[in-house]
Design a protein around this nucleic acid. Structure first.
Lengths: 191, 191
DNA sequence: AATAACAATTAGCTTAAGTTAATTTCTAAT
DNA sequence: ATTAGAAATTAACTTAAGCTAATTGTTATT
């Protein structure tokens, strides 16, 4: 599993064998069974995550209703707002599947960067890509109708539809499960 | 104007007087009159921006209709997706007001970082804050109704309502100007 | 001051999403 | 294999947004 991280990092920067070992020796990988809550509303996040295998769902509790706001799957980083701002979390993070996840803490990250300074270069690159993705996602969400958003999702993340219940998908698309049902029906009719 | 940048950077990292001079000597500040198009759809962005004064609007052209997706005001960075991905831009960037803007290019940024390596540390911090903000904005947009989004905007960015036409605000909220009119009416009635 | 161009509101109609509730389908556990 | 619980769909009704078009308000220019 460690080698997934090495491979991922190497897609941004070149690592020497020694540096690879430093990273491997971190031993920061854990396995969580399905439904594990990684972060609960109100808690202060002390960790950030990198999904090696599995799926983590971010959701808000809006008067008893769970509203999904993100799915994190393989090779995605999870940096909770609460982790960055050191404030109480507005949302939950929960494993939708058994998941293998690399954990980071501020201290350990700083330590690692001290040992391998060019990791900071990688962070900047990662952040650039992430923020570009965020922009595109936000723009799509704003400019597309619920039906278009659903169709877009089937193209951009088809895997999600197989591994995640539709009621989670619905709120992720900003609509109710009932609406999603109707949309799916509409689409299958017109084809 | 240069000192706004110095001040902003200093809120992340400490600069020596020499480093401040390096930054000041960049001379990367320009003034653009209202309605200047900084980036057009289809173009390849070669610059990123930092708004010192004024307001820049990001918008997509969706079959003839302009759909606003962001307003950038004082102390906000604009990093076009096109700049990051080196692909054709999906959207326009246009000055809503006469604006004073600091420009960055890949080459110049790299050069600057070579001279002041700790700027990279600042970039990581800036990126963290930006991505936390992005998350919160996305979550709000997904979880709130159009009316709630409008009310939220009046609280989080009240300045925008005075400096930007309502039809821009409407599409920024993901609704039509007609809908926004109705919402504003509804709100003023119930108060 | 008059006019043109644009911005904002209003109205009527259509469409689709939200809400509530019932029904069917699927899944997991005994 | 049966059953309980959850997920997904369906239906009826309500609400609000989209669309088209007309009207009013505002701003800038000559």
């Amino acid at each position: 599993m460690d080698d997934f991280i090495i491979k991922y990092i190497s897609s941004f920067i070149e690592l020497t064998p020694e540096e690879e070992d430093i990273i491997r020796n971190q031993n920061l990988i854990k396995t969580f069974p399905k439904d594990t809550i990684l972060l609960a509303e109100g808690e202060h996040a002390r960790e950030c995550y990198f999904v090696l295998k599995g799926c983590v769902r971010r959701y808000h509790n809006r008067n008893g209703e769970e509203r999904t706001t993100e799915f994190y799957t393989e090779n995605q980083s999870i940096i909770p707002v609460s982790y960055t701002t050191k404030s109480a979390s507005e949302y939950f993070l929960s494993c939708v599947e058994d998941s293998v996840i690399a954990l980071g803490t501020n201290e350990r990250n700083d330590e690692l960067i001290k040992q391998i300074p060019k990791l900071e270069t990688m962070l900047v690159q990662m952040a650039s890509v992430m923020q570009a993705n965020n922009q595109v996602e936000m723009d799509n969400f704003k400019n597309l109708t619920p039906e278009e958003r659903y169709l877009n999702l089937t193209e951009t993340r088809p895997d999600l539809l197989n591994r995640v219940p539709l009621n989670y998908i619905a709120t992720y698309l900003g609509i109710t499960p009932e609406s999603l049902s109707r949309i799916r029906k509409r689409i299958s009719r017109n084809r």
